[in-house]
Simulated scan of single mutants.
Amino acid sequence: MNLHFKNILLLISAAASLAGCVDENYQESVAGRTDSQLLSNVIAAQSELSVFNELLESEGLLPLLVSRQTQDQRAVFAPTNAAIEDFMSANGFESAEDIAGLDRVLAYHIADPNIRQADLSQTNFNFIQTNADQDIFVNRSGGQVRFNNQTVNILRSETGNGTVHLIDEVLLPRSNTMAAYLNSNPELSIFSEVVALLGLESELSADFRTLFVPDNQAFLDLLDAMGAGSLGELVDMLGEPALRDIVRYHIVNGLVYSANVSNNQALTPQFQGEIRPRVSTDGDNVMLTYAENNAASTMVTVNDEIFQTGFVHVIDKVMVPVLGDE
């Protein structure tokens, strides 16, 4: 027999022998795939989440929770049946159809990527990205984690391809805007007028800002101090660029609210000038200091209502920044 042909027969025989040893049930592992339970199944297995599960199905959101790919791991903050019942009763809803934007409300409870309960305890963990195109603001008060400044208790957590947190509240996307709040408050009308005059409305819709709004009396005091008889005269005296800097000095980057302020805390406004405003606390009183050597101060009326993009507090003076030499 030809030696070359004999070698081929030996190779064929060896291959056949190896084929008989292959496990017919063997499946090649797929990169990024896990054997964890689908989150949809985790939710369905919890009897106290039956209403939430039905709503997810009716609004077509279960497909978000049926992947075993690790890159699709999510966290679901699932309100219990009791939480949904309390929410419906408190708002006078007879059925889920009465909830405006129900699909978005439900999507607001689905976070991407996965978040474990231990993540929430970290002080630098401040935002939860949701499938409703709006983050949940995470803050802390008295050692307790709060969502959108609302107390929410995590009753327990179940794991699958992600995490399901059973919670005792229904979460709602923030719908109230800074601009609407200002327009509805007659004591803040001059600030609203100045913002419109200078075309600074977009500054109020940027995410995660804190606004310190001088009330009308604060502006009247400034007009009197400057010898201006009207807002128009003030604009003529200062010029629009300088007035724009003054307004932007009252718009601070980041979220400032009662639970996270500390004495002598420096703020970072949109226009910083030479001197950054600082928080000064004395018991329950909160003030901002500003001007040369932070010698001037204004009292802050703290408002812990969170708006779509941050917080709004009222102050009793217009803070004029130190502009420095041009």
Rank of each mutant, 00 (worst) to 15 (best):
T159G: 01
Q134I: 11
Q265M: 06
E158R: 06
P63W: 13
E59D: 06
E203S: 05
A96D: 11
P277Q: 02
R116M: 09
G232R: 15
V322Y: 02
E305H: 12
A218S: 10
H165K: 03
L166R: 08
D304G: 00
N131R: 15
G20E: 08
M226S: 02
F147V: 05
P79A: 05
E48L: 08
S297E: 04
S47M: 12
I315P: 06
A118N: 12
S121A: 08
A180I: 07
D207I: 04
F125E: 01
I190D: 08
L243K: 00
S157I: 06
P277D: 02
P63I: 07
Q134P: 13
G239W: 13
Q122F: 06
H250W: 06
A295I: 04
E59A: 03
N91W: 10
F93C: 05
N2K: 00
V42T: 08
N264R: 02
V235I: 05
N303L: 14
L3T: 13
Y290C: 06
F271E: 08
T177M: 03
I43G: 00
A15P: 01
V322H: 04
S262P: 10
N126T: 15
I190A: 11
I154L: 01
P321Y: 00
F191E: 03
S184K: 13
S175D: 12
E158V: 07
Q217G: 10
I136S: 06
L211N: 13
V170K: 09
Y26G: 02
N253L: 09
Q27I: 14
A132M: 14
D98A: 01
E292P: 01
E85P: 06
V286E: 10
V76N: 09
S95H: 10
L188F: 12
R209D: 02
S184T: 06
P79F: 02
V252K: 03
L222Y: 12
Q270K: 09
T298H: 11
D236S: 14
F212N: 07
G92C: 00
S50I: 00
L223Y: 11
D103F: 02
L39I: 14
M178I: 04
N285Y: 07
R104W: 07
A83C: 11
I8T: 15
V247A: 09
Q144I: 07
L38F: 15
F93W: 00
D112M: 14
A45N: 08
D284I: 09
Q46C: 04
D221E: 09
T123L: 12
N91E: 10
L243M: 05
R146Y: 10
V105I: 04
V312F: 03
F125G: 04
N2T: 01
Y26C: 02
L234H: 04
D207K: 04
D282R: 12
D23C: 05
E59T: 03
I84F: 00
V252I: 09
N7I: 03
N183T: 06
G143M: 08
Q71P: 00
D133C: 01
T309M: 09
L267N: 08
S89I: 12
N293Q: 15
D304A: 07
F52H: 11
F93D: 00
V261M: 15
I110N: 00
N124E: 15
N131A: 13
F77Q: 08
I12R: 11
E201W: 02
A118W: 08
T289V: 05
